[in-house]
Amino acid sequence: MPQSPQGEDCKKLAAFLDSSIDSSGRNESALIKTLYEAQRIFGYLPKEAVFLISERLNVAVSKVYGVISFYSFFTTKPKGRYQVKVCLGTACFVRGAEKIARELESRLGIKLGETSLDRKFSLESLRCVGACGLAPVTLVNGKGYGRLEVKDIGPMLEQYTDGKS
């Protein structure tokens, strides 16, 4: 397994908890906000983060996990450094997003919802980013690529091969 900077991330989460909890009261109502922030920091919700949140918010860890499993936005599976999200919304779909998704799958060697073994890429689908005029659209770590054709995918991914984002 590649080294992950998890210790640093835990510190960031602890700092967030310090700054946010006491003002809003240590209770369940801060849970979703905190999980959102933790997932922003870690890219996913690792056990350490969930345990820390459970302890600091005084919400049972089983309950916290219940909430995580309820919302499809939250994930306990590690994500890649580059999160590739292909839009399969109506406009993108009619303009060939399906082909784009298949091309991404074959080039990255993973299926939608999966993360590559080296944790470099993860691939997900989403429904509409509000840029239908640019359909079909794909996001890589939040950066948008529009009017994509299958031949564009290779060059797009090449920008993310040297470890820079």
Binding site: A60, V61, S62, K63, Y65, G66, S69, F70
Partner: peptide, 13 residues
């Protein structure tokens, strides 16, 4: 959770 506060079980998914 409420009576025993063992917190081993929760509804998931």
């Amino acid at each position: 959770n409420e009576v025993q506060t063992v917190n081993a079980l929760s509804a998931v998914n």
